[in-house]
Design a protein around this nucleic acid. Structure first.
Length: 254
DNA sequence: ATGGTAGAGGATCTA
């Protein structure tokens, strides 16, 4: 069983990359973020031709999340139950005994901004909802763009980023609250190369210089973490023509 | 110093 997540930064532009990636990697589920598509424009047909079902929650211009899967998803939830929000940032579904949650955590713009406040209200609401979900589903995977680098080793230049958005202590503490629910950061279950990142700014040759952050994650409940055989970041997609600024993250469950 | 690049949409906003 393979689970993956990828912030595609426009599914319209990245559809050929996504189709190719599905064909090469054959994940059972691929969670997408920043689809930037309304639901009527979701490329259901093209994805079905690659052998995948689609569930999605989108809006015009911004945000938008989806789960592509070989099996059909059930018990679909497409918003946080206790957080009134126009922005489409959550979609969850059940596949057999697996609960899959795809999230696009708010970016937060800069520490102290209105968008940062929104992020810091959004995260506890996510945590509270997942606490309920984990009572129902023992096998739960939370995948997505968390817009949080959990530790200094997830940052190319920790001094430059110290206290900044994506790295601030309140954000890291909110990430820690997710782990306290009993979720594991699958990437850290294994030895990993130093300076492993999932996002590199389009500007200033950041990818070529490997000036990135690890902000895309796959968190696994205890019952899934036990069966996790590998977690890798696929940097190859970032070298394609017109790439997303994020790389996919992939776990293998035995 | 507040740059720079990309996407959506058609002037800025978001990241």
């Amino acid at each position: 069983m393979k689970l993956a997540t990828w912030n595609v930064n426009s599914l319209k532009v990245r559809l050929p990359h996504v189709i190719d990636w599905l064909k090469t990697n054959q994940p059972d589920m691929l969670c997408l973020q920043e689809t930037k598509l309304t639901d009527e424009n979701f490329p259901v047909k093209e994805i079905a031709e690659a052998g995948y079902e689609s569930i999605f929650a989108g809006q015009k211009t911004y945000n938008g999340v989806a789960i592509l899967s070989k099996q059909k998803g059930l018990e679909v939830v497409s918003a946080l139950p206790d957080f009134v929000d126009e922005q489409k940032r959550v979609i969850a579904a059940t596949f057999g005994d697996l609960r899959i949650v795809s999230v696009y955590v708010p970016n937060g713009e800069s520490v102290g901004s209105d968008k940062y406040d929104y992020k810091m209200r959004w995260l506890p609401s996510l945590t509270h909802w997942l606490q309920q979900e984990l009572k129902v589903y023992r096998k739960l995977a939370l995948l997505g763009d968390f817009n949080i680098a959990p530790e200094d080793r997830d940052v190319h230049d920790p001094e430059l980023w110290e206290g900044k958005v994506l790295c601030s202590q309140p954000e890291r503490s909110a990430f820690g609250d997710l782990l306290k629910l009993g979720l594991s950061d699958s990437f850290r279950l294994f030895d990993q190369p130093e300076k492993s990142f999932t996002w590199w700014d389009y500007r200033m040759m950041a990818f070529r210089l490997n000036r990135g952050l690890r902000i895309d994650h796959i968190l696994l409940s205890t019952d899934l973490a036990r069966d996790c055989a590998a977690c890798i970041i696929d940097k190859s997609t970032r070298k394609l023509e017109r790439p997303s600024d994020h790389a996919p993250v992939l776990v293998e469950l035995s």
